[in-house]
Every structure is written in structure tokens, then in C-alpha cells.
């Protein structure tokens, strides 16, 4: 039972000259609910495609429950609800579920799958006549047919209202307690924070942060002290700043020094240190909310990457 549900080792993916994924190492334990958080174009969908074996990594390896991704799909161990997955309009809801069920060696009974997804009443309706929400339920019914050990969801709650989202996630969590691993891509920070055990923050094809919601939030709590360190006075003393109590992140961007302190009061100490013991001036203390933390983390990766070009 110690086989990781997903293991990505040095995975990269290029589309011609575009580097969509630039080297991801990731291991998901069984039963974890993990959010794959990042802005559009960060490489979330590309990574999920590789976990499903829909595309091959340019370099590195993807493994699902100790198997090659396509093998795991053939065993019915992985399912997904993808943004791009289409449905045939002239099949009925029941036929669509029946069709999908016939493709797996072990599957839930069709009636049970319909009932679980709450679509028994519309079972005989043509898929083309179903609303967007009903079609989404149908997709879930199809994905849950093989009782997958790993469920991948690409922006699963797009278009759902708040109550819908809550009910959806409580169902997902219930299944996770029985050992199902869930990896969901989202660009909603709140959703990742509320419903995932673990958040993997991805930007520009790289993982920029990985931790519990609380850990990610800690990056957002506290304050950031920003100061100008004139170039003529030499390089900022990175080590000394990082060694100050309560400091968890030091960024140097040209003449700008950004010191983040999570603990209360720590930012005062940082400010005192900067003004009395260093040539820094032009000091500014700001607090970030979650959204800003997210943006600064993802923008940070962008700048690092600009620098490496």
C-alpha cells in the first residue's frame, strides 16, 4: 500500500519551441486530495495529460500506482473528468453510461452509477438535450464507473454555484477517505485551500510551492518588508536577512530587497535591522492576502525564468 498513486520524475514537455512543463518532480500518496493550483497556461492540463498517458513526456517519467499511465488506465485504476472530454449528443444518458461501462473489466452497475450521480430521472434523455450541469454529472458518472484509485479532475467546479461546489467536494472527500487519491487542477485559490489536503502551486511549468493549505497561506500571512538597497553599496546581505527571527523568504530583485516575515512583530525587527545596520532605504511594509501571495509566488517564477533566458 506504499506505492505512490502518482510519481513524476523530472517530467518535461515541449510543444515545438514552447516549454509547457519544465521539470516536475511530484509524488502523491494514496488517499491524498491534492490541488494543482496555478494560473491558466501554467502547465496543469499538460501535466495531467501525461499522468493519464494522453501525451508522452519529452523527458522524465510518469508512473501511476507503480504502472505506466496507459496500463493504469487499461486496468481501470485511473479516471478523469477533463475539460476537453466530449459527449455524443445523439446517445441517451443511459446509453452513454452503458457504453462506457462496457469498456471496463470491473465496473459499477449502470443503474447504480446513474443513481449516484443523480441522473436516473434523465437516463432516457438525449445527451444533446441535457443542460451543462447535467452533462457534467454524466461525466462524473462515467469517471466513477470503474471505482478508480486515482481520479483526476480538470477545473471540476467551473460553472457550479457555491452550494453545488460544497456538496461536490464533500462527496469527493468521502471517497478519498476510502483510499481514493484525487488530483484536481484549479485556478481558484479558495477552492484549493478549502478542499485539498495539499496544494501544489505550479507556474510556468514548474512547481513553485508545495504544502498544506496552511503552509501556503503562511506565505501569505505576515508582512513583506520592501527596501531599496543602492547598487553602489554592494550586494545585499542575503544570509544575514534570512537569519533574522521570523523571516521565511528573502528575494533580491535588482536593487529591490523583499523580506517576508510570517510571525507577528517580526517585520518590525526586519525594518529596524534594515534601517540601522544596512545601507537600505526607502522602506515599505505591506501585508499580502492569499490572492497576492499566489500572484507573487507565480510571478516570482516568471521572473526567475526571465533571468535564465
Amino acid at each position: 500500500m506504499t506505492t505512490p498513486a502518482v510519481r513524476l520524475t523530472g517530467v518535461t514537455k515541449d510543444f515545438g519551441p514552447v516549454h509547457a512543463v519544465r521539470g516536475i518532480d511530484l509524488e502523491l500518496a494514496q488517499g491524498e486530495v491534492v490541488a494543482f493550483l496555478g494560473p491558466n497556461g501554467a502547465g496543469k492540463t499538460t501535466t495531467i495529460d501525461m499522468i493519464l498517458g494522453l501525451s508522452q513526456p519529452t523527458s522524465g517519467a510518469a508512473e501511476v500506482l507503480g504502472m505506466a499511465p496507459r496500463q493504469a488506465v487499461a486496468h481501470g485504476l485511473v479516471s478523469a473528468v477533463m475539460q476537453t472530454g466530449g459527449l455524443i449528443k445523439d446517445l441517451t444518458v443511459r446509453e452513454t453510461v452503458e457504453y462506457t461501462a462496457s469498456l471496463f473489466a470491473d465496473t459499477l452497475p449502470v443503474d447504480r452509477a446513474l443513481e449516484n450521480a443523480g441522473i436516473t430521472a434523465i437516463a432516457d434523455r438525449k445527451v444533446g438535450k441535457c443542460s451543462g450541469g447535467e452533462q457534467q454529472r454524466l461525466r462524473f458518472a462515467m469517471a466513477l464507473l470503474p471505482d478508480p484509485a486515482l481520479l483526476l479532475l480538470d477545473e471540476p467546479t467551473t460553472g457550479m454555484d457555491v452550494e453545488g461546489r460544497r456538496t461536490f467536494w464533500s462527496a469527493i472527500r468521502q471517497d478519498a477517505e476510502k483510499g481514493r487519491t484525487v488530483l484536481f487542477a484549479t485556478h481558484y485559490l479558495e477552492e484549493a485551500d478549502q478542499y485539498a489536503d495539499r496544494i501544489v502551486l505550479i507556474s510556468q511549468g514548474r512547481i513553485v510551492a508545495d504544502g498544506s493549505g496552511a503552509e501556503i497561506r503562511a506565505l501569505a500571512e505576515g508582512r513583506t518588508v520592501r527596501a531599496t538597497w543602492p547598487r553602489e553599496t554592494g550586494e545585499p546581505d542575503h544570509a544575514a536577512l534570512a537569519a533574522l527571527p521570523g523571516v521565511d523568504q528573502v528575494d533580491v530583485r535588482g536593487e529591490q530587497v523583499l523580506v517576508h516575515a510570517a510571525k507577528q512583530g517580526a517585520s518590525d525587527e526586519v525594518a529596524r535591522f534594515l534601517l540601522t545596520r544596512t545601507p537600505a532605504r526607502d522602506l515599505e511594509i505591506t501585508s499580502k492576502n492569499l490572492e497576492e501571495a499566489f500572484l507573487s509566488l507565480t510571478a516570482g517564477a516568471e521572473q526567475t525564468q526571465e533571468a535564465t533566458r
Binding site: G118, G133, Q136, G159, A171, I172
Partner: peptide
């Protein structure tokens, strides 16, 4: 009980 797109626990 289960709004749009919601799978009940399997």
C-alpha cells in the same frame, strides 16, 4: 441534495 455536477459518494 446533489446540485449540478455532483457525484454522490461511491
Amino acid at each position: 441534495m446533489t446540485p449540478a455536477g455532483t457525484p454522490a459518494a461511491t
